[in-house]
Amino acid sequence: MSETTTAVQTGALTNIGFLELEKCEFYRNPNGFLCLRYEGEEHNRVQALRSLPLTQPDAFLCIQDMENQEIGILETLTTLPEGMAELVQEELERRYYCPGITDITSIKEKMGFYYFDVSIGGFKKTFSVKDLGKSIKELRRGGILITDVDGNRYLIPDLAKITPRCARQIEPYLY
């Protein structure tokens, strides 16, 4: 990140357009949508997008209006004042839905497709996965991201922290 910042400062690259935190005010409108007041200008409903969703989910957050025009980039979520950080975090969680798998009941292979029976919180969920090499990604810090044939995503936040039985179930399928 420091390299990029240096490049921006020296003008070697286009200015990345970081939002100045002291000029940002995130709030919700009566319909529950995230809005931004920035440099006195009202942006009535904005969306927050992750630039690096897999590697740095809480940094380089792109704030756009509903016409997909970029207002600016939030360098990190943590530097926002507490209440506002929560609002942006909620918006991110709403946009990037990736429930955590709490238990793996079984993984069955049938005709080249893999059928997962898992628990998400208290809910049982069954989904199927094809092309293991593409659909199961190992993330940094021991996480596993699984994408099913419909495009749903599921997360095992830390392989080291799930039960040994679950780990044994998933390990043969990690490429």
């Binding site: 319909n31 949508f33 749903n152």
Partner: peptide, 17 residues
């Protein structure tokens, strides 16, 4: 009206898209 005035109805996973 603008998108900000939209009324949220429901949310769903890609299974039901």
């Amino acid at each position: 009206l603008s998108d900000a005035e939209n009324i949220p109805v429901c949310r769903f996973t890609m299974t039901y898209v």
